[in-house]
Design a protein around this nucleic acid. Structure first.
Lengths: 144, 144
DNA sequence: GCAGGCCCTGTAGCCGGTATAAAGTCAAGC
DNA sequence: GCTTGACTTTATACCGGCTACAGGGCCTGC
């Protein structure tokens, strides 16, 4: 199959397929006499695997590593487990940060009623006030 | 004050200050005879404002817009409110997506006990299996 | 007069794609 | 045989929000 069909069947853009090849996530396929890429079922399976990992928001470097490990059946899989664990930790940290952010933004939104003018906008005032309080990372005494 | 002091007092990198100037978030300051940027207290206040907005993860374009609006005291502030509202909606959506992702990753992690080899790694098997099920965006019959 | 710290401009890199340009290939229809 | 249009090829630039580096100038203290 050619690149267009492969891309369609995996639900990705043609450009993305070529990008993954350049990045070493997809093996370079055989070429037709006219230079078109010719893919087999294994390429589709691989591409779907990569996309599934991406849907879990794994970095391309991590996926590349998992693919390399997957080729060595008899090696211990600790690294795969650690990789997933580390990724989960990052996702969790980011989710928690976004939760805090969401609360801050909700509080900010509550500062201004509609029908105000800029001069009396509670949101703007709060933004300015909060920025003054912040200063820099060294606001705690004895900060390093 | 020179750029180093400004940056230190706002808790940012010197490069970032120059970047904000290029991006129109910070007014270009006066220069000393030798070409050094010379900042006043207003610049520091502005920089802290920008950094506070960034700490709320607002995009630079949004911050630029808020700054432009802030100069016109008598204009209605609806746009500021909408901007914060839209940003909150994005943050909320992203947080929810990360929550789902976190659950998926927790389920994935539970698939493999330690001490396995690649060939028997539950995580890898689950990744491969899930990728096969996924196929493309058109797996529902009659999908557009 | 020179070492080291600050500053200047310009450029490139990060990530995971996405978009564009300019050209070649191929099948169908006239 | 010729055209049209869908497909393919490579190469290159762009997105955000910085960060890093190269190659120079300035300024202070010893």
């Amino acid at each position: 199959m050619r690149i267009g069909e492969l891309a369609r069947r995996a639900g990705v853009d043609v450009q993305t397929v070529r990008y993954y090849e350049r990045e070493g996530l997809l093996d370079a396929p055989a070429r037709t006499p006219s230079g078109y890429r010719a893919y087999g079922p294994a390429h589709l399976e691989r591409l779907r695997f990569v996309r599934h990992c991406r849907s879990l928001d794994m970095a391309l470097a991590d996926i590349r590593r998992v693919l390399a490990l997957a080729r060595e059946a008899s090696v211990a899989c600790d690294e795969v487990n650690q990789l997933v664990e580390a990724h989960l930790a990052r996702v969790r940290a980011r989710r928690q940060a976004l939760e805090r952010l969401e609360q801050q933004l909700e509080a900010l939104r509550a500062q201004c009623a509609s029908g105000q003018r800029i001069a009396g906008c509670g949101i703007l005032q709060e933004l300015i006030h909060a920025a003054q309080g912040e200063a820099c990372a060294c606001h705690v005494e004895g900060a390093r």
